[in-house]
Amino acid sequence: MTGLERRYRRLMRVYPAGHRAAYEEEMIGVLLSGAPPGRRFPAPADAMDLIRAGLTARLGRAFHLQRGTGWRDAAAVTALFAALLMAGAGINRLIAGLVLWGQGDPLRLHGVDGLMLLDPAMRTVVWPLVVLAAVLGLRRTTVALAVAGVLVQAVVVGLWSVPMNARGLSPVWGLAAGIAITALFAVAVSGRWVRSVLGARGLALAVGGAALAAVTRMPALEGFWVPQGFDQSFFQPGEVIQDWAPVLVLAAATWTAGRWVRRRIAVLSATLFTVVHVLRDVPGLVNVALRGDLGGAEMLSGITVSLLAPVVILGGGLGVLRVLESLADRGHGQVRAHE
């Protein structure tokens, strides 16, 4: 073996093993046939071409392996859950606002009475429509309505940004959630109908989980459900009821989706939840820093750590999925080849 051949073979390692097994000998023959006599090192153009084509083959293979493995189903379900929670949050805030309005609060914003109600009213209209379209299987309509939801969330950010300086960034989480929901529904547009993934019972449980999250977060209604003469704090829903019970109900809703889709839903949901959680925290952090209670360096490090959290969650989740799938493949004696 000449030095040139050895160097070409070294470059060929950039290809996936399956591709090398199928084409390496042939390609080496072609590369050596095209090399002028006396050449000792691969031509830079040939080397670049091999690296580019090899990496493309690797990426293409990785994409091919992921196709049809439930990501579209998981995207549809995660987007539905998030849209349900957005709908619940909108309805929750609208009812709370109407109660305050009834108690004589003008809910004034930008000098206009009742303008505060515009925020939850728009959200209460758009997100339930997104959910309805998704449940009916109108996939393109769902994406179009989700885009409308993003526009609504952008208007909400605009409504609050002027009078509240840094705290006005608080509704940014809703805009980010809206964009994520739209992207997930767009990914799922050529996948299965969400009802066929979850089943009727799963859908009912999903709606129940979102309703539970919305109802238990309705502080304006405290006085309505606590019987006269009882200690109100005793009836106040705790973290377990407000957070974990809805999560458990939503997890139960995915039961019929199958193990692999369920795991993907868990990864996507955890990432989306972290994004929302982080974007709710960051404006608060900025606000504290603006008040002078936090140094600039501390604020920056806090923001950096917060923004990295979703990346870590997604990367970790994908890593765990990959390990589990490799173990399952070995368990079934499967070998994935290039061709």
């Binding site: 591709h19 199928a22 084409y23 042939e26 390609m27 023959g29 072609v30 590369l31 046939s33 095209g34 153009a45 040939d46 071409d49 091999l50 690296i51 580019r52 084509a53 090899g54 493309t56 083959a57 061709e339």
Partner: peptide, 29 residues
Amino acid sequence: HGYAVIEDVAAMTGGRVRLRAGTLYAALD
């Protein structure tokens, strides 16, 4: 065969296109 394809493409295009091995085998695959 692969090298003959490279030569024929170069001849067809008057030398304007000279396929490299990586590009050729990506297309063949």
